[in-house]
């Protein structure tokens, strides 16, 4: 095969142009300078073989370091996400639980279903109530009209009750698990329903006592105390004053302060 570049007198213009283009490039000339330069670089990189042998170890270390770093970062992110998710879930749970009790609390109270204090004393199961705090002779059944009903949605406070309980004890900041929240809310909701819908304050008070015993630092403590005050007032229970005192000590600026003060006033008379 004849080389195209050697076809000098080509009639075909395309072939002539192609030959011309091919002739424009010459064979690569030998360059001793380039040869020496590359050789010098090669001698400089003689130790590169040792570096290449270390490459797997370096790669392994890099992978390990990257893995450890990823694990640490992932753990931190996971903890942050979990914490925020728990917080959001708790907030959601509180708001969800607030709706029902709020409606129930705003329902008109039963005016005349409360038993007498004597009836309550016979059936009461509370353990550490100090009767001296209550003046039985002054216990005409209080009207709920005189006791301000907590208005609006229930807040999400922290409170504690063991009966009796040191009044200075403050709620802890530890967040309970979600299922505990549900149980708490269930107890308070049941009490609110018994009080407002079923007009059964004794049952409500029992549920609230149960709640305050099991969840002294419960998230719905303030509501529980307020409902306990209201239940005791409806029952004519002398513990209404005690509940009111406890509420005022624990929640001096709470939303049900006025109700607690009214209960104290009623019990004082």
């Amino acid at each position: 095969m004849e080389r195209l570049r050697d076809q000098v007198h080509e009639a075909d213009p395309t072939r002539a142009r192609a030959a011309d283009l091919l002739r424009s490039e010459r064979p690569l000339p030998r360059s001793r300078e380039r040869e020496a330069r590359v050789r010098a670089h090669l001698d400089d990189t003689r130790d590169r073989r040792a570096i290449l042998m270390l490459r797997p170890a370096v790669a392994l270390c890099t992978i390990l370091l990257a893995g450890v770093a990823s694990a640490l970062v992932g753990r931190a992110v996971y903890e942050r996400v979990t914490a925020s998710a728990t917080s959001a879930e708790k907030t959601h749970l509180h708001s969800a639980h607030r709706e029902s009790p709020a409606r129930i609390l705003e329902a008109p109270p039963a005016p005349s279903l409360a038993p007498t204090p004597e009836q309550y004393r016979h059936g009461a199961t509370h353990r550490s109530f100090s009767r001296t705090e209550w003046h039985e002779e002054s216990h005409a059944l209080p009207s709920l009209d005189a006791l301000p009903t907590p208005s609006g949605a229930l807040p999400a406070p922290e409170a504690a009750l063991t009966v009796p309980m040191p009044p200075t004890e403050k709620p802890t900041a530890t967040a309970p698990p979600a299922h505990t929240d549900e149980l708490e809310a269930e107890l308070v909701l049941r009490a609110a329903k018994a009080l407002r819908q079923d007009h059964h304050p004794a049952q409500a008070l029992s549920a609230l006592e149960n709640y305050l015993q099991h969840y002294p630092n419960g998230a719905l403590g303030e509501e529980a105390w307020a409902l306990a005050i209201e239940s005791a007032v409806q029952l004519g229970d002398p513990r209404a004053s005690y509940f009111a005192n406890q509420y005022l000590v624990r929640f001096p600026s709470g939303r049900y302060v006025q109700a607690a003060k009214n209960a104290q006033t009623l019990s004082a008379h």
């Binding site: 330069r37 090669l42 990189t45």
Partner: peptide
Amino acid sequence: EMDDIAQEVFLIVRR
């Protein structure tokens, strides 16, 4: 790029 290519080729050759 010829120098780089040649250097790399002869590194492999030496190895």
